[in-house]
């Protein structure tokens, strides 16, 4: 359906056009519409893949009632970036390797993608990725959260994530003794 617009766009733009040639429209809980590469959506999300295969995609916007517009925008942005970031050679084998990669280390661009998110947006994105069965995005976001925890004491982690310590002193002492090896010198 896309016709060559012949404006001498950069290679990058052309790739975007190619990736978006076949798109699906998703609708957030608050009624906003987003366009996403069908290929990337099907490859990255088991739920969307199922909907695409099952023909339950609505041209006027497939309802995703559990996902707010900000999170869905990030999901769509991630899918489209993913579609554009894979070198074409890798794309051929990516359907296997991306989901089964032994190391879940994020790529540089994926790191940047999650680094720029606010705390709220990050967690909304985790939930959206979980809901949509996006294993790779879930790995990337979980990796980011674990990075936020790494090297911190329980007290510091509670502070970063607003976790309320609901243990009694006695319970906490019991855990510390049970896991004496795991604690820092505090």
């Amino acid at each position: 359906m896309e016709v060559d617009k012949g404006k001498g766009e950069a290679e990058e733009t052309r790739k975007v056009a190619e990736a978006d040639r076949d798109t699906v429209t998703l609708k957030s809980s608050d009624g906003k519409l987003f366009e996403v590469s069908k290929e990337a959506a099907a490859r990255l999300s088991t739920v969307l893949a199922g909907m695409i295969a099952g023909g339950s995609i609505d041209d006027n916007g497939t309802d995703l009632k559990q996902i707010g517009s900000e999170a869905l925008e990030n999901v769509v942005d991630y899918c489209n970036k993913h579609a554009n970031s894979i070198p074409s050679a890798a794309l051929i084998s990516s359907s296997i390797s991306f989901n089964t990669a032994p190391f879940k280390e994020p790529e540089e661009w994926e790191r940047k993608f999650v680094d720029r998110l606010s705390h709220d947006a990050l967690f909304d994105l985790v939930e959206a990725a979980n809901f949509l069965g996006m294993e790779r995005l879930l790995d990337v976001t979980c990796h980011k959260i674990s990075e936020m925890m790494k090297g911190k004491s329980p007290d510091q982690i509670r502070e970063v994530f607003n976790i309320k310590n609901d243990y009694t002193k006695e319970e906490l002492e019991e855990i510390r003794q049970e896991l004496a090896w795991a604690f820092y010198d505090d």
Partner: peptide
Amino acid sequence: DHISGLPDAILGEIISLLPVKEAASTQALA
């Protein structure tokens, strides 16, 4: 507290990405 609301399976993933000492000490959070 967003993190504690995540499903167990996701928290398990996050915990398993931590070095074992830190992973074990998450038990003391709450």
